[in-house]
């Protein structure tokens, strides 16, 4: 009896199992592909074939029913993913060094500012490149930077980013402040939609395009956070930084700025 062929129309087990399985598949497919689509609240169907395609997951073009509202201010056009920046060549770094000569006045001879401008030495290249492109497009505006970037080519900006990223990170010019990490930096404030700073800015994890903050000028950091909070600065893609700064209190902004300034 165990020798009876299984895959045979005379085997009741075979016929029953296949018939039941196929039956369930056909019934559920009929309901799922023909009947249910017609009950969908958000379906836009033109006939039965359309319903089947839609239920099968064939990709639809996005509807064009409402016009896209254009903004009143320029936003960043940079595609900020790791693949945006290739690995820098020695030639690129060398060109960057030459191009960087005018920058030293504010950003220091080795990328370490003694004014309240940002330190650029060892900064993530994508962070530098993105700011340069945004200055050029007008997404970020600064009386000193905007005119200087106007004449730069895409390659110039990549070279500058490569050069400054190549310079060694050094402790900033700011005295280290002892003391505990402020709560707003360490844990953020979840219900105000503030994630811990370090989850994007490098020391826990890195979100492409974010800047290395350790050792930056406290004046600069606090000013940027306030500008993000008011929307005066708006070149952060999809409002990622405005969303955070908006929820911070003035005291928290100062704490965060002081904390990062004091880090090596």
């Amino acid at each position: 009896m165990t020798e009876e062929p299984i895959f045979s129309l005379r085997n009741r087990w075979f016929t029953t199992a296949v018939a039941v399985t196929a039956g369930i598949a056909v019934v559920s497919a009929t309901v799922g592909f023909l009947w249910l689509p017609t009950l969908q609240a958000d379906a836009r169907l033109a006939g039965m074939w359309d319903a089947i395609c839609s239920a099968a997951g064939i990709v639809r073009a996005a509807p064009n029913e409402s016009l896209v509202v254009q903004g009143t201010y320029q936003t960043s056009g940079v595609i900020a993913f790791p693949e945006t920046m290739e690995n820098a060549s020695a030639i690129s770094i060398g060109r960057g060094a030459t191009l960087a000569l005018p920058c030293t006045v504010c950003h220091g001879a080795r990328g370490l500012s003694e004014a309240d401008s940002p330190n650029l030495a060892g900064q993530y290249p994508l962070a530098i490149f993105k700011q340069l492109v945004d200055y050029k497009s007008g997404a970020r505006v600064n009386a000193i930077m905007s005119p200087r970037v106007a004449g730069m080519s895409d390659q110039d900006m990549r070279d500058l980013a490569a050069y400054y990223a190549y310079l060694p990170r050094l402790p900033g010019q700011h005295p280290a402040t002892a003391g505990a990490t402020p709560r707003i930096v360490e844990s953020g404030a979840p219900m105000r939609n503030i994630a811990p700073c370090a989850t994007c800015h490098g020391s826990v994890d890195y979100k492409a395009g974010s800047a290395w903050l350790e050792g930056q000028s406290p004046v600069y950091l606090a000013a940027q956070l306030r500008a993000f909070a008011t929307g005066a600065r708006h070149n952060d893609i999809n409002q990622q930084m405005r969303n955070i700064a908006r929820g911070m209190s003035s005291a928290e902004i100062d704490q965060a700025a002081q904390y990062y300034a004091g880090q090596p």
Binding site: P37, Q40, D42, I79, F81
Partner: peptide, 17 residues
């Protein structure tokens, strides 16, 4: 209460552009 009716795509790289 039904799963969404359509599959549509969008490129995350250029959403902001």
């Amino acid at each position: 209460v039904m799963p969404q009716a359509q599959v549509e795509t969008a490129d995350p790289r250029t959403l902001h552009i």
